[in-house]
Write a protein that binds this DNA or RNA. Structure first.
Lengths: 209, 209
DNA sequence: CCTACCGATCGGTAGG
DNA sequence: CCTACCGATCGGTAGG
């Protein structure tokens, strides 16, 4: 991880002019891409946001698409780590246990890396970069669907709904976090992870217990 | 409702040239907006899709933004009807019953009007048209959250998760349908509505019964 | 000579 | 419904 300073004026380095590094530009770009949409955001918008000129941005970055690609790779790396950490090395744990852990870890990644994941979930496949991201995302979806299928086969989950449908609805709920979650809002990370897990596995209805 | 002909070559009207009407152009536009994103779709793309020239499109349509606004209004009208039909006229039904019906009706609207609703769910607020749509959408979200709160207060739903959080996760799951549902796919409308309702209220876990 | 930038403008394309 | 265009703005780069 790079140092994550709070947003604000560019840090002064040495006695030169204020300077941004690649990471700071990427953060600002992702924030803008999410607020306005990738295509609706111009490099001029990004420059204005940073208080730079457009050419100054190209001193740090090779293209708009590269910024997108890096954000998507960040999100995909985190999600892949979450899925492989929880779903790999079966043996000693049931599919049901691994699925619960994947859900919890996914929520944590969504919350911790919300901007990048939000961008990922909106990708349409309009370029090579986007198509590559969609392919990695499909791989993740397949892993998750397989895990759900295992948990159903194991007898831990209801079998009156097709596993692929269960998987889509479950991770549809998880992914919907990016639409409203705000790190400074009323709910902290653990609370959201608990709520998602509880509702997904036990339902909204009041418990019989 | 206008006549909904299957997609295909433009219908011949009388002895003139092949002609599109506003509704046909709107359908094609919404399909493109969803496939590539609104901003990434040019009016030239739409013209090519329809086999027309760009100016020919402007014979039927006043602006790109107007096409967006009409699609968003369609989606919002349908969703508003679903919510008011199910949640209004309380008296004889519990909040829990009304909530279940809203969920079911919402799923049906999403499936029946998927292209327009998909567009709605991706709106970022980049223009007056989009801001107006977001405002109507917020009104719907508030109605849904109130209904969930009533059902919790009634004792029908679990009270260990804040009602606003429950509402967001529940309709996050419902709305995620637009990301993958295909009318020609393996699941029909009723099956999806049943699955969503069952999973949402009773959870993924196998029943004790 | 480096870094971090600027004013101006490139070739193309947007909506209309 | 087309050919022929407009004002503006796009992502990206020139020299200094």
């Amino acid at each position: 991880m790079t140092t994550t300073e709070p947003a604000g004026p560019p840090p002064r380095r040495g006695r030169g002019r204020p300077g941004y590094d690649q990471a700071a530009i990427l953060r600002a770009a992702v924030e803008l891409f999410n607020r306005k949409g990738y295509d609706a955001t111009s490099m001029g918008d990004l420059a204005k946001e940073l208080g730079l000129t457009k050419p100054a941005i190209y001193h740090h970055v090779t293209s708009k698409e590269q910024l997108l690609g890096q954000a998507l790779d960040d999100a995909l790396d985190e999600l892949t780590a979450a899925v492989t950490a929880a779903s790999g090395e079966a043996a000693d744990r049931t599919a049901h246990e691994r699925l619960r852990e994947v859900v919890r870890r996914s929520v944590e990644v969504l919350v911790a890396h919300q901007p990048a994941v939000t961008l990922l979930l909106r990708v349409r496949g309009n370029s090579e970069v986007e198509l590559a991201a969609l392919e990695r995302r499909r791989w993740l979806d397949d892993r998750l669907a397989a895990l759900v299928a295992d948990a159903v086969a194991e007898g831990a989950l209801r079998d009156d709904v097709p596993p692929t449908l269960v998987s889509r609805l479950l991770f549809g709920m998880v992914n919907s976090l990016v639409e409203w979650y705000r790190p400074d809002g009323s709910y902290d990370r653990a609370m959201v992870a608990d709520a998602v897990t509880a509702i997904a596995f036990d339902g909204l209805a009041r418990h019989a217990s």
